[in-house]
């Protein structure tokens, strides 16, 4: 597991570094998506998560969910075209799960990508994510995952 400026990134995931999203491959061609520790550190304590509903299409680079932290509203952007298979109802009911456990119980949605093999080429495997994230944090002036307030 990589740790960059206090933010952790499990090795078994793929990362969309610019959009602070992670993806986990599953058997059967589906992928679980979620927000990284960086995403929730930037947003603060989440108070609402509204993902697209199961059965709806999602488009690469577009919003698959709207999140609110009380002081901020923004999109969670998915990295590839696909279809939403399921959403994490527990997260919708208790958005703070994403702050407490972003890589497990705080998962956002299960998606069937149109072409996962193609999508993977634009993502960074967990065992290689430290350097790109360090570069992004440096460029963004992001101090780290310990809350400053």
């Amino acid at each position: 597991m990589a740790t960059v400026r206090g933010c952790v990134f499990p090795d078994d995931l793929y990362y969309d570094v610019p959009n602070n999203m992670w993806y986990r491959e599953e058997a059967g061609g589906t992928v679980v998506a979620g927000m990284t520790t960086v995403a929730v550190a930037l947003a603060g304590q989440l108070v609402a998560v509204t993902p697209k509903k199961a059965g709806r299409p999602v488009l690469a680079g577009k919003s698959c969910a709207t999140i609110e932290s009380g002081k901020w509203v923004g999109p969670a952007k998915i990295a590839f075209d696909g279809e939403v298979i399921a959403v994490n109802d527990a997260l919708v009911a208790e958005p703070g799960i994403a702050n407490a456990d972003p890589y497990a119980d705080g998962w956002l949605m299960r998606v069937r990508p149109a072409t996962w093999d193609e999508a993977k080429k634009s993502l960074v495997p967990g065992n290689q994510v430290a350097a790109p994230y360090e570069a992004k944090m440096a460029a963004d002036g992001f101090a780290g995952c310990v809350c400053k307030t």
């Binding site: 930037l42 603060g44 002081k71 992001f142």
Partner: peptide, 9 residues
Amino acid sequence: VPRRVTDIY
């Protein structure tokens, strides 16, 4: 602009 919400404000 800053990314962290507290910094945006």
